[in-house]
Design a protein around this nucleic acid. Structure first.
Length: 487
RNA sequence: GGUCCCGUCGUCUAACGGUUAGGACACCGCCCUUUCACGGCGGCAAUAGGAGUUCGAUUCUCCUCGGGACUGCCA
């Protein structure tokens, strides 16, 4: 009724390509927003001027669009809560920092990075991690501050940890959790270069963009969530709900990273994965509809998705299962659509054989999509088949020479008089030849395969023969004939 | 080291405190298509360990063990 409209956000930092872990977070946010008729906001966290790059912003945009994760507000789209890049929102952050300074919830710190590093080094290796800022500048007088500033000593602005014991969150997937405040220290809000840090910036963005649900990865849980909550309360701002998604791990059980192979969404695109397969698979990483349903398109995912069913234990990324999903979607896909997608895949596929004979090309794709796993497999298969050299000496021993010669004779004869070169016609010829010679199954198909491809496996034989073309197939059969007579 | 989270087949997961612990991927076998693949059927395979609560524990509690995350003037 007077429920606030749900607003979620996806705020990547453009320091790399959009990877699977973040893509899943984007997906979950998107599904959640769509499920509840809310808004999905896409903003950019580029306060790290050194590492942020425009090409990565573009990559994130491309990847999201490719996946079909459309945002309602944000980058390239605008909206009433913009701008949507943190580097353009500095005024907002400074306004809030002023408030914190005024309320004595933040203070100027003139300690240099070198100084801090020294302090840290004083601790032995084991305790180096336990280092916390000691609060040296916490109680500087107004005069000291003015003096330091006048001397142009670079300064940061730090948050002053309140004197409370615990901060509590009621996480949407983990339930109530308490963090001891003394595990934190007076963290930096504004860097010495004047840029806000992550915790300040997200918090201000979320607050000013009326974000109602913060759905993000578990890696934000322990450090960032308590800090941000402290910030909200120092500013007396209403808290959004938090929901932390389980991590996606590599096969070695560590956080998914480059080490685990291809991981950028655009890599999956160029490998030949279909967006619907990737979405479907990612959705099932840490979530399930609560029953045995697995194959779900975006509409179904939206329909069934809810945070309640999100797992709290991490999930391991299984490339095999992703491939299986892809095969499923490839088979379902309209062949003409696949043809168009292949055209857009890569330039190298613009000169694959037969591409200009639209009708034949479509038949090839149609026949090959049942064998392929990745989109790319289809044109690659066509190219491979094109380049097969036919029967080689090393495989001769695998067949009965006399039978093979008879088979070849029949085949050559039949193919010669075949005037309608199509997979169906080829299939019929093979069938009738088999019948006539009274051989079937492996005895029939394996020799023929060997004649034209020198292997005994691959896509449908009639598709292979169709792709090779009448002329070449006849040539290969004759070559095989010669080879076998010579033996 | 500290803090916190997590622990069902190899992997993703299902199971009002009562099920022969279910499904999917992978793997293996059979069938189908006169081959392979696709598809169909079947098989292998799990509640980390130990206490407790209970008539009864995968489910609730505690301990142990194991895994993970965080611990930046990165996000």
């Amino acid at each position: 009724m007077n429920q606030k409209k749900i607003r979620v956000r996806f705020p990547p930092s453009p320091t790399g390509n959009l990877h699977i872990g973040n893509a899943r977070t984007a997906l979950f946010n998107y599904l959640y927003a769509r499920h509840y008729g809310g808004d999905f906001i896409f903003r950019i966290e580029d306060t790290d001027a050194l590492r942020s790059m425009d090409c990565f912003v573009q990559n994130e945009i491309d990847a999201l669009r490719w996946l079909g994760i459309e945002w309602d507000e944000g980058i390239e789209k605008g909206g009433s809560f913009g701008p949507y890049r943190q580097s353009q929102r500095i005024d907002f952050y400074m306004e809030f920092v002023q408030r914190l300074l005024l309320n004595q919830n933040a203070y100027y710190c003139f300690c240099s990075p070198e100084e801090l590093e020294q302090e840290r080094k004083l601790l032995d290796d084991e305790n180096a991690y336990a280092y916390k800022y000691a609060g040296k500048c916490r109680y500087l007088t107004q005069k000291e501050i003015e003096n330091n500033k006048a001397r142009n000593i670079p300064y940061t602005i730090r948050f002053k940890l309140p004197d409370i014991e615990k901060v509590e969150v009621n996480d949407l997937v983990r339930g109530p959790v308490q963090f001891p405040v003394d595990s934190l220290d007076d963290f930096i809000l504004v860097r010495s270069n004047g840029m806000p840090t992550y915790n300040l910036a997200v918090m201000v963005d979320d607050a000013t963009m009326n974000i109602t649900h913060v759905i993000r990865g578990e890696d934000h849980f322990f450090g960032n969530t308590p800090r941000q909550i402290l910030l909200y309360s120092a500013l007396s701002l209403p808290l959004p709900s938090f929901g932390h998604m389980p991590m996606i791990l590599g096969t070695d059980r560590s956080k998914l990273s480059k080490r685990h192979g291809a991981f950028a969404v655009t890599d999956y695109k160029s490998m030949g994965f279909l967006p619907e397969a990737l979405n479907n698979y990612m959705a099932l990483l840490g979530w399930s509809p609560g029953n045995d349903l697995e194959l779900m398109n975006m509409d179904e995912l939206i329909q069934y998705f809810d945070l309640e069913k999100v797992q709290s234990s991490p999930a391991i990324f299984d490339f095999n299962k992703l491939k299986w999903f892809n095969g499923q979607y490839l088979r379902k896909k309209d062949s003409q659509e696949l043809v168009d997608m292949i055209e857009n895949l890569d330039e190298e596929y613009l000169n694959i054989p037969y591409r200009n004979q639209k009708n034949d090309y479509l038949k090839m794709v149609d026949g090959l999509k049942h064998y392929a796993i990745l989109l790319r497999d289809i044109p690659n298969l066509i190219k491979d088949i094109e380049s097969y050299s036919g029967l080689q000496r090393d495989k001769i021993s695998e067949m009965d020479t006399l039978n093979a010669l008879n088979l070849l004779k029949e085949l050559i004869e039949q193919f010669k008089i075949c005037d309608e070169w199509s997979p169906e016609a080829i299939k019929n010829i093979i069938r009738s030849v088999g019948k006539k010679m009274n051989i079937k199954g492996k005895m029939l198909f394996h020799p023929i395969r060997l004649f034209v491809t020198n292997t005994t496996e691959g896509p449908d034989l009639n598709i292979i023969i169709f792709i090779k073309g009448k002329e070449k197939v006849l040539k290969l059969l004759e070559q095989a004939f010669d080879l076998l007579t010579k033996e």
